[in-house]
Structures are given as C-alpha cells and as structure tokens.
C-alpha cells in the first residue's frame, strides 16, 4: 500500500536526521570540534584531549536520546490507553511524584540505585492516586483524568516543596532545585550505566508491544471478547510507562512538554496506528530533546535548565498541532 511506503520513508528520514544531529551535537559545544574530529573519535583515532571531550559529549547524547525516546513513548502509551490526548507523564503527576521519591532519596543520602527505586515506587504510587481520584470523579469526559492528575501533581509539588524546605541549602537544595527543571549536566558514565538499561528495556518493551497498545484503546468489553485481559494489560503498560518516566527523572530531573507534545507530532505525520506512530514518536522524541539539550549547553556559558528550552520549542508546536486538529484531544 502507498501509505505504508510513505510511512517507511518518513521513518527512515527521521532516523537519518537523528544520526546527523548526533554528529552535529558532538561538534557543537564550548569547544567547537570539526567533523573529522568526531569521525576520528568513532574510529578510535582521536587525540587524547578531543577524545576526552567527545567521550563526555557522547555519554550525554546517549542519555538524551534514551530519555527523549523514553519520555515520548511513555506519553504516547498514556495517551493511547487512556484514550486521552492530554495524558502525559507530567500532567498525570507521575513525573512530579517520581521526583518526590528521588528528592527524598537524595535527602537521605541514598545510593543511585535506591534513588531510582524510590522514584519508581513514588511514580507508581502517584499514578495509583491519580487513578483513584479519577475513579471517584468519573463521568464520560476525558477531563476527569486530567483534573485528577492536576490535583495529585499539586499534592506532590507541595511534598517536594517541603523536602526543599528542610534540605541543606548549601548542597542538597541546589541539586534538588536544579534538577526540578531538568538537566543532563551531571550525567556521567556511571549514572548512565545504572539508569540507561532500565530506559532501554522499557523502550524495547513498548516498541514490541505497540500493536497491543492499539487494542487497549478499545472499550473494556471489546478488549475482553478479543481474549485479552484489559485490566492486566493496561496496568502492565502503565507500569512500564511509569518506569520510563521515573528512570528519566533519576537521570536528568523533570523535563516538561516532551511526553505530551511528541506523540502528537508523530500522529499528525503518520496517523494514530501505534505500530507506526510509536516508533516514530521515539525517534522524534530523541531528535527534539537532542536539539533542546544541545541548545541548552551551548547558547550560554552555563547550562540552561532543559525544561526552559523544551517549553520554548514544545509550546508553539503543540499550539500549531491543536489548531490544525488532525489528532483528537480528550
């Protein structure tokens, strides 16, 4: 079919664009490097000084790509199973909840894997609270889920505020505040090595389960009579999407807009079949976050918090898509 052909081309172009951007991003920074420097790094022939810089940049870029894909695919998953175009890790409160868990663990001086676990547990707990509130508010509009998310995110924000209030202002407070707006500045090989595999597993899981996501957007009785357990499957997807969100939060803090906007960009290009739009969502998420992070670390002397950049990029795109209304919201 002609449509499949077009979708394949879009996907290939997106991947090529991502590869080009990776190379460009490695060239750009406080010390600009040449294309040849970057190539010599990949073929293991770089001089030790450029090698050091490129190793740092490449580690950061890998983290950015994984987080960009992970957050966007988590957003697409939430939007698909809740049948709600406004569902995203941030709006459902999952991101803030995860950051409460992580902040608490940082405050207690726990090791990175405990920070990760704490973020995940709080993320799941937040999702659970949001779903309970939604259950009590429930009517047929998709707005109750969003309302529940806003309520619980507000609660988590207050808890996070309390943690900040009692945090040591010399050391802990700075790191908590900085990471509320998201940044990859502190990502190093060891943090990537501990969180990256979680992101990768989550991404691969959703990638392979993408057709099932389509089925789960049907009403519950239909899903059941297709022989699929709707509750079990939905919860499984929610757990994986929450895991991705909390892993991203552990690595680089809370990043706004990516999980909400990128699935809409992807659907506006290839339609809402997750078999095609979910992989594209992952690649576009990586592209968008890579552009944002490269700007964040290169347009000023200091790193700019990432949510500032993703907001400036994401908001106009989102408004544009909503006006064109090719995808349904709520």
């Amino acid at each position: 079919m002609a449509k499949n052909h077009k979708n394949k081309i879009v996907m290939i172009l997106a991947v090529i664009l991502l590869v080009v951007l990776i190379v460009m991003s490695m060239m750009i920074g406080r010390y600009n490097l040449s294309f040849n420097d970057v190539m010599s790094y990949f073929f293991n022939r770089a001089t030790s000084s450029t090698k050091l810089i490129l190793k740092l940049r490449f580690t950061r870029i890998l983290a950015v790509i994984l987080v960009g894909a992970g957050l966007s695919m988590a957003g697409a998953t939430f939007q698909s199973i809740f049948n709600n175009g406004l569902a995203s890790p941030n709006i459902l409160g999952v991101a803030t909840g995860s950051s409460v868990g992580a902040a608490f663990a940082i405050l207690s001086g726990m090791p990175i894997y405990m920070v990760e676990l704490s973020a995940f547990v709080m993320g799941i707990l937040t999702m659970f609270l949001t779903l309970i509130i939604n259950h009590f508010l429930r009517n047929n509009s998709g707005m109750t889920l969003i309302l529940a998310g806003i309520i619980i995110a507000g609660l988590m924000q207050s808890i996070l505020g309390s943690i900040k209030y009692i945090a040591d202002p010399e050391d802990q407070l700075q790191s908590i505040v900085y990471w509320e707006l998201g940044s990859f500045m502190k990502v190093d090989l060891s943090s990537l090595a501990s969180v990256g595999p979680v992101l990768l597993v989550g991404i691969l899981f959703l990638f392979f389960a993408r057709w099932r996501l389509n089925v789960l957007s049907l009403d519950e009785a239909s899903v059941k009579t297709i022989g699929i357990n709707p509750v079990l499957n939905r919860n499984l997807m929610i757990v994986v999407a929450t895991l991705l969100t909390s892993a991203a939060v552990c690595l680089c803090g809370v990043i706004g807009w990516v999980g909400l906007v990128v699935p809409h960009i992807s659907r506006s290009i290839v339609g809402s079949d997750n078999r095609i739009s979910l992989p594209l969502t992952g690649v576009v998420g990586s592209i968008l976050l890579l552009v944002a992070d490269t700007l964040a670390r290169s347009i000023s002397v200091n790193d700019i918090p990432l949510s500032i950049v993703t907001g400036f990029i994401g908001v106009p795109i989102f408004v544009f898509i909503l006006i064109r209304r090719k995808t349904t919201v709520v």
Partner: peptide, 23 residues
C-alpha cells in the same frame, strides 16, 4: 472514537490469535 483507519481497526480483532509482543 478511534482515529485508526477502518483497516487497522478491523485488524485489532486478529489480536485474539497473537501474544503481547506480536505483529
């Protein structure tokens, strides 16, 4: 409310014959 194409919508019924990670 699905914005899937009719073709992809019908295809969903075939999930009855497949596992979680199938296409």
């Amino acid at each position: 409310k699905s914005s899937l194409s009719l073709y992809d919508y019908l295809l969903l019924g075939r999930s009855a014959f497949h596992g979680l990670f199938a296409q």
